[in-house]
Write a protein that binds this DNA or RNA. Sequence first.
DNA 1: AAAATACCGTTGCGATTGCAACGATGTCAA
DNA 2: TTGACATCGTTGCAATCGCAACGGTATTTT
Lengths: 141, 141
Amino acid sequence: MSFNLDQFLPYRLSVAASQVSRRFAARYETEAGLTIPEWRVLAHLNKSGPVSVRDINARVNLDKSMVSRAAMRLEQAGYLRKSTHDTDLRLVVLELTENGRELMKRLGVIAEAFQEELLAELGGDAPILRRALEAMIRQTE
Amino acid sequence: MSFNLDQFLPYRLSVAASQVSRRFAARYETEAGLTIPEWRVLAHLNKSGPVSVRDINARVNLDKSMVSRAAMRLEQAGYLRKSTHDTDLRLVVLELTENGRELMKRLGVIAEAFQEELLAELGGDAPILRRALEAMIRQTE
DNA sequence: AAAATACCGTTGCGATTGCAACGATGTCAA
DNA sequence: TTGACATCGTTGCAATCGCAACGGTATTTT
């Protein structure tokens, strides 16, 4: 019996992830032409409040160079503001502007709606899926 | 209640997929320094026998340019052979060499072992995870 | 049979990515 | 206190990616 790629879990996982990402990107594309890193930074800031690049890097699975560049673009677009930390001058504090919070409010609605669609497609398997994903993520943290 | 990225399914799916891919890549890195596209082409050819670039492109979720370049590198490394189709001259037929089959035999063992690890970590959730992944993939095909 | 159309694989190109190096700042230890 | 080391964010760079265009071949249409 030779190896069968079609039933190989890492492969199926990767295919599913990229297709779901693609579907979702098509949704928020119409609302605002954000890249995935930009979307993640925006979404994280919306929840966390003002934090450093390093903070986001650690929590959002993005290389710090990507966080830095995404933050630059979001700043130029007027969605976030940069400032230096009060006591630690190495830190750059990122914070959403009013425009950023407003955009995120609209994107949040789209995201929730998309997730509802997914959950409906998955039916009762959804909670187990979640648990399985978390188990796989935990394994490397 | 504001949107929470940490519980957003597409995001968790993406994180899980990239971490699992990373873990797996570290395993076969020591056996042969293949990229992900190269690995996929190799694995598919091992199962399918001789097929065209287009065939792989359609089945393995890789752009045809990536299949083409991966095939070029695998050919240079001596793992596959290219030839033209008997009747349709547009088609390039890809086929593993003896070296390629031999490499794939070793990689198959590594892949199976890794998957066993994953399945053990997941326990009884594994079959449901599989079903959920397939459901999400199906939705876009 | 000729012309228009479709398909195949390769290549070029701009954009994105991950890694490593760097300057600047902070912390710790002697 | 000062020197060694760690951490932060940015930048440079090489590698990779996805898309589109291209030349070549096949198929369909008229």
